[in-house]
């Protein structure tokens, strides 16, 4: 049975897409077939991490939602990112959002059938026989996000350790609970002072009554890499990569 894993954050800039891409790579590197859907239609970005150039993909998620193509046609395999790093196992499939500004504008103005998303997810899982489907959501709360959360087997909320994220995450956690998400996890990104991490984990877990899968420090190396490559494949021995690997393992086991 395939896992539907939503990666969400209440605010933008938490590193959600980057973590999603890295988790996809780590899951795939264990020999799994992993799908990634970028539902952040308003500001798509995960394609860049997988090295997908604008125009390289004929169709996008937008086309599927407008009925122009099948979900499969809107999906492309990006397993090359694994192979290029010498990883022989696993596959990754990416369904990107349209990178064209006209499509983004139209989507914002006309909207789409949210219900179509769910069938698209299911169809993709079936067609590509995915083991895991990672949904890179749009930050905040809107209909497609709520839908993604509602159908997820695992919801991982990314938050930064600051006042606004603490507040917003509380809302997201409560909404997830009301939608009966089976597995709810937290992942803290861009944390400072590693010495405080144990205390931070304890406080967050007790505040939200939710397990924290990991705490990623604010790392210069990650910032330097940006969205140009997959950090866990580029620096597999880095502590961040180790943490992400641990997170991937826990998600896979959930």
């Amino acid at each position: 049975m395939a896992h539907v894993i939503s990666v969400h954050s209440f605010r933008g800039g938490t590193g959600k897409s980057n973590i999603t891409a890295n988790l996809a790579a780590l899951l795939a590197s264990t020999g799994k077939r992993v799908g990634v859907i970028d539902t952040d239609i308003q500001s798509p970005g995960i394609h860049a991490i997988f090295g997908l150039e604008p125009g390289q993909q004929k169709h996008s998620l937008n086309d599927f939602l407008w009925g122009r193509c099948t979900i499969e046609a809107a999906t492309t395999e990006v397993t090359a990112v694994l192979r290029n790093k010498g990883i022989a196992k696993g596959q990754i499939y990416l369904t990107p959002g349209s990178m064209q500004s006209s499509d983004i504008t139209r989507m914002l103005s006309e909207g789409y059938d949210v219900g179509l998303l769910n069938s698209g997810f299911q169809e993709l899982i079936e067609r590509l026989e995915l083991d895991h489907l990672l949904i890179d959501t749009h930050p905040g709360v809107n209909e497609e996000t709520l839908l993604s959360i509602a159908i997820s087997d695992v919801l991982m909320l990314i938050l930064r350790p600051d006042r606004q994220d603490y507040q917003g995450t509380a809302v997201a956690v409560e909404l997830a609970r009301q939608l009966d998400v089976p597995n709810l996890f937290l992942l803290v990104n861009k944390a400072i002072t590693p010495a405080d991490f144990p205390a931070l984990r304890e406080r967050i877990e007790s505040t939200y009554d939710t397990p924290v899968l990991g705490i990623l420090p604010l790392a210069q190396e990650m910032a330097v890499l940006g969205s140009s490559d997959l950090f866990c494949l580029t620096k597999p021995d880095h502590p961040i990569s180790a943490t992400l690997k641990s997170v991937a393992t826990k998600i896979a086991a959930a």
């Binding site: 350790p161 600051d162 507040q167 400072i192 405080d196 931070l200």
Partner: peptide, 14 residues
């Protein structure tokens, strides 16, 4: 940094 550290550990929710 100190402010951030304090805020980081001040996991407060309204």
């Amino acid at each position: 940094l100190l402010e951030s550290q304090l805020e980081q550990l001040r996991v407060a929710v309204d």
